[in-house]
Amino acid sequence: MKNNLLKVAFAFAIAAMMFTSCAKAPEVEVTDAKAAIEAAKATEADRYVPADFKSMQDSLNVAMLEIENQNAKFALFRNYKKATATLTGVTAMAETVKTNAATRKEEVKNEAQQALAEVTALVNEVKELLTKAPKGKEGKEALEAIKGDVVLVESFLAEVSTLINNGDYLTAVDKVKAASEKATSLKTELEEAIAKTSKRR
C-alpha cells in the first residue's frame, strides 16, 4: 500500500516537473536576429547584396512562423530548437552579409571613382588639346564652342562626385559614362582639327 502511494506521488511529481519545465520562446534570439538585420540594413546591405539580405529576412520570417507554430501547441509539446537554430543562423549570417555589403559597396565605389578619374583625365587631355588646336580665324568659333562643352562636361563630373559622396554609385556610373562619351567626341573633334592643320602645313 505504501508503495502504491509512493508511485502516485512520483507520478504527480513527474507531471508537475513536466508542466513547470516546458520550453520557452527564444525571445532573446529574436531580438538579436532583428537587431542584426537592422544593422545590416544600416550598411545598405539591402541595396548592395539584395539576394543575401532577402535570404536573411526570409530566414527570420521562417523562424518567426516556426515560433508561432510552436506557440500554438500545448505547452508540454512546444519545441523552439528549430526556430532558435534558425535565429542564431540569421544573426551569424547578418555579420557575413554586412561584410559582403561593405565589400560590394567598396567595389562599386571604386568602379565609379575609377571611371570618374578616367573621364577627368580625358577632360584634361581635351583641355591640353585645346591649347594645341588651331587658334587662327579658322578655329576660333569652334574652339569657343568646345570650351563651352568642356565646362558642361566638368559640371557633369562635379555632379558625379556629389553622387559618389552620397553613395549613389549606380547613377554616378551612368552619368560618368555619358560624360565619357562626350569627352571622347570632343577629343576626336580636336584631334581631327589638329591633324587637318598639320596636314595643311
Binding site: 564652342a145 562643352d149 558642361l152 557633369f156 549606380l170 551612368d174 559614362k177 555619358a178
Partner: peptide, 20 residues
Amino acid sequence: RKNFTSAKLKYVESKKAYER
C-alpha cells in the same frame, strides 16, 4: 549650344540607366 550639349549628356545618361 549649352542646352543642346546638356540634353545630349542627359540623353546618353538616360540610355545607360534604361539598359539597367
